[in-house]
Write a protein that binds this DNA or RNA. Sequence first.
DNA 1: CAAGAAGCTGTAAACGTTTACCGTTGTTTG
DNA 2: CAAACAACGGTAAACGTTTACAGCTTCTTG
Lengths: 358, 358
Amino acid sequence: MADGPTINTIAERAGVSIASVSRVLNGLPTRQETVRKVMAAADELGYVRNAVARSLKSRRTNQVAFAMADIGNPAYLAMLRQIQPVLKAAGYRLVLHSTDAVVADEIDVLHGLGERYVDGLIMSPLRVTDAHLELLAAARAPVVIIGSVPEGTRVDNVRADSRTGVRLAVDHLYSLGRRRIALVNGPLDTVPGAARGAAYREALEDLGLPYDENLVQVGDFYRPEGGRAVAELLARVPDVDALMCANDLIALGALDVLRAAGRRVPDDVAVVGMDDTDLAAASWPSLSSVSLGSAERGKVAAELLLERLKGGEHEPRRVTVPPHLVVRASTAGAGPDERAARGGSREAGGAGERGAGS
Amino acid sequence: MADGPTINTIAERAGVSIASVSRVLNGLPTRQETVRKVMAAADELGYVRNAVARSLKSRRTNQVAFAMADIGNPAYLAMLRQIQPVLKAAGYRLVLHSTDAVVADEIDVLHGLGERYVDGLIMSPLRVTDAHLELLAAARAPVVIIGSVPEGTRVDNVRADSRTGVRLAVDHLYSLGRRRIALVNGPLDTVPGAARGAAYREALEDLGLPYDENLVQVGDFYRPEGGRAVAELLARVPDVDALMCANDLIALGALDVLRAAGRRVPDDVAVVGMDDTDLAAASWPSLSSVSLGSAERGKVAAELLLERLKGGEHEPRRVTVPPHLVVRASTAGAGPDERAARGGSREAGGAGERGAGS
DNA sequence: CAAGAAGCTGTAAACGTTTACCGTTGTTTG
DNA sequence: CAAACAACGGTAAACGTTTACAGCTTCTTG
């Protein structure tokens, strides 16, 4: 691994100055003869530009960081899948951070912006603390936040609308004739847990349905916990006819328990999940789910950041991505025809394996 | 965004030379008084080291690239999830490339190593072409390949053993008393397709079962195609009692079709998938699947790379990660107890949402 | 044909660090 | 008290680029 050729090596071999070499490599106007000599020398030596030196001088790294809370979370993964191609097309490399939803790690990432190893950052913080805000205000590179920030924070941000999302689901269940609609939620001290709880209550009110505490069960955002929560719920309120689950994993747990209890889905109990992950399409019965537009949020965030990087100084922008409901078998009375078509749903293809393994 | 302070700003304010500042910041022996002055100045100014300048001088970027074929593929994702923390713990940032399984993109990445924006690379190429080999031989930074490379290639590599994987599955089905074991494969012109086809044949032979062409159906590595393939198979060989599917998506398609056809799983037909993705645990019935150790391969690859980066020049290493079979309901006659436990399988937790959305 | 313009190219400085080398100061010791 | 030595800290070069500026040709034009 001998040291590679530099611009100096080329200059020497081509018999010109390093300035000329640089000009040729950057396509600046140069005499044809010089171009030829430099190109020839560069080719022979297998020259490749040193990105680090270039960054130092130009003050641009052509790198953008994405700090995701958890690689394993399909919602963040969906963002990543959209962000990556957008950045790539614009000539940026992607530096990936997984903060494991630990605030200290997020702070580290923000602080690290000062190291100038990236030109910008997209971050989806679990929750926004004062430390976040302080660093955001002083950030030495553009940042786009995926999620909500306090009113008045001068940062571009892209948010979901889980409130409308919950409403979509509840309205859907109502339109199917369900009147005992329960909420299976995650912890209330999390941002999404609290938001979904409040939205559920509102949605019921607007429909003129009574809010019944017995119909709300709090567990955690995982499958076994979701199942347990539903089991308790069934014991307490046997006549429940619909479950609004705060995410897809909870909904899968619900399906497990309903099946074990001999309740038919959707005939006896209809089930709606949230986030519309791959798992929703894969489960049996396939799961109706509210998409909060994770993919779209990722895409928009990347585009906002690119605009900033292009230089236009403008006011911080705030974009809200609307949710939408994806109806599948767990709420539609799925006949045999629909079953056959189910496998072809949007998500199934994307999760495909093309050539792994061997 | 005024230009941040540099080592010069600090030197000025502290009344010392830049050399002293650098020494203090790097913890080299320095008089206590000087340390104090420099630290104070650095703190007041909110100084952060410029990573680019540092890299230029030190010739290390503290970045490692991972070139994955497809972000959407759960197998590669599993690798990423293991690679990330290993690198992070060692102080490296992760630059993520998605090559979309396009050879030209992979070549670009290898060529890009010359830009020296990373200290090393982990790559999982779809297939290895001559162009790959040429660039690998001349690579100016350590590379670890996840997958197979031709004998004699001087590169660290980590490979799966899908042959043994297929055998594990077939043996398992045999041990359950199944004798009409079909293979539902993907295209034979892909590396995994070919390997799995051959391994299936071998496994049957070793068990003394006849190889029956009718029992082999070729489709594609996706769910709807998998379903179609199984439909044809059932029409042709109604007495089939077990399906070895070349990946989990095919297996999910198989479950769809078997259910529609009124065949009970596993009682009438047992089904095994491959890759052991999240979907296997989520489906109903949950899917037995052969894990080819994607996660483990990622971890090992990262460790091999770190060793290289630590400097020891040693012979290229080749590690083969053994596959293992994860038995779930689609082959075990699952009683009610096992059903309840199902949600707690290894994969389910990891896919959890902790705080997305809001 | 002289003078000015236009087109290239080379010199050198700069980006922000790290570090080899040398000079200064203060301490120890014969 | 002088000499030797240790401990620090400053100067300057280097990492590999880009680019402002000035100098040299060559061409155009009056």
